[in-house]
């Protein structure tokens, strides 16, 4: 099964809506609640990163009998140093975004902890692609 959800850069009031749709689908499919929880955390963080750091993006979801594969791709500034971005506490978020409680630099580490596989590729001034894979078994 494949699904695609658009993500708007800068629109914080909609942040989390794509992840919420995926959660509903996984619940309907009776996926193990523990795996739904992990997937929801990682998708939410990926979605918020597009909202907070990029211009626009998509969440492409592919659900198989044994796994969920999600590709979040965006057009945006890209990530110059992925190892640095992965460090707990590293954030380039603006003061306004931080005041709302985003920008703690815990997003990518949260994704790492809550996914079985995580792959990031990024090109500066073009965009970022993040792949998250969680197995149901």
């Amino acid at each position: 099964m494949e699904f695609k959800f658009a993500i708007e850069g800068g629109n914080f009031s909609k942040a989390g809506s794509a992840s919420s749709e995926v959660k509903k689908i996984l619940k309907q499919l009776n996926v193990n609640p523990k795996i739904i929880k992990r997937t929801v955390v990682s998708l939410y963080e990926a979605e918020v990163n597009v909202v907070a750091h990029a211009f626009e993006g998509n969440m492409n979801v592919d659900i198989d009998t044994d796994k969920i594969v999600v590709k979040i791709e965006d057009k945006g500034p890209g990530i110059p140093d992925i190892d640095q971005a992965m460090q707990e506490g590293y954030s380039t978020a603006s003061p306004q975004v931080r005041e709302m409680g985003f920008g703690a630099g815990m997003g990518l580490p949260n994704i790492k902890r809550n996914s079985d596989q995580m792959n990031i590729t990024s090109k500066v001034d073009v965009g970022t692609e993040l792949e998250i894979i969680n197995y149901f078994g």
Partner: peptide
């Protein structure tokens, strides 16, 4: 928000000063 996302659990009460829709 990421701290709550990563560490709070189902059926928890969340104490915060954040008031926005997120």
């Amino acid at each position: 928000l990421s701290d709550v996302m990563g560490n709070a659990d189902e059926n928890h009460v969340w104490v915060t000063l954040q008031t926005h829709k997120n």
